[in-house]
Amino acid sequence: MTTTQAQVRPNPLGSRSKSAGLAFLLLVLGVLYLSPLLWMVLTSFKNRVDIFSSTPRLTFAPTLDNYREAFQENGFTTNLLNSGVVALLTTGIALLVGVPAAYQLSRSKSKLGGIYLLGLLAARLLPAMVLSVPLFVLATKLGLSGNYVAVVAAHLTFSIPFTVWMMRSFFLSIPPSLDEAALLDGCGEFGVFFRVVLPLTKGGIAATTVFCLINSWNEFLFALVLTGRDTATLPVAVPTLLTPIGTFWGQIAAVGTVTVLPIALFAFLVQKYIIAGMTGGALSSD
């Protein structure tokens, strides 16, 4: 795991001096690669005429009108809040119930545990329609429609399995001898979990949290079916800007930018946890 070993592997990019030039090339390629995203951000500051120009315009007089119209006049601030609330609730519940379950599964070798884990994976494969119609009916029957319950429940169908699998692989990397030692020292089962094991998997929990938040924030289909007027999240609200009296591309770009910005910043700040999360399941288990 040291950088020295990298020198042993063949270097497809050649010597270091060449790689300086290549770095510049990569920068250009990187900007090109992100151009769809950058273009949307640019578009959000354009007026109608500049947007509809059949020759793309890179220079234009920037305007904040799109943001003002979307967030001050068209109520997208509410959707922004809804997105936040749904993501936080989902993540909170998923961690609360998923982390202890993951710990227990990591310490048990029973067949049942294995089946349970596979069941969780299978749950991830359920088509959205199979889940959303019953959840909708259930929420209605329980008198819970019109609030966040149904959509949060739907988001739990992917965030709990994710949390369990992810955290299990982090817990597996902690030798069971450690908890056994702590048990002998007189900690109860809960004590071991909270005082010994959890602090050791802070990184894993951070990674899991980040992924749960992003996945819930980004989810569209469940939210489309299961949210109402007061609970619609940003992705659900954006398509309402395509209307018979015109498509408000400027506002779409503005709302799109605001939807993407928090997670982009967030991802930048907690980058190492995201990488840990992505690779955690693949690299640390087995």
């Binding site: 209605t140 019109g146 007027r229 398509p239 209307t243 018979p244």
Partner: peptide
């Protein structure tokens, strides 16, 4: 709301009798 989503909201609301 746009046409499609309006119809959806209406049907769902009617069905739930809320």
């Amino acid at each position: 709301a746009p046409y499609d989503s309006l119809v959806q909201k209406a049907v769902l609301d009617f069905t739930t009798k809320k």
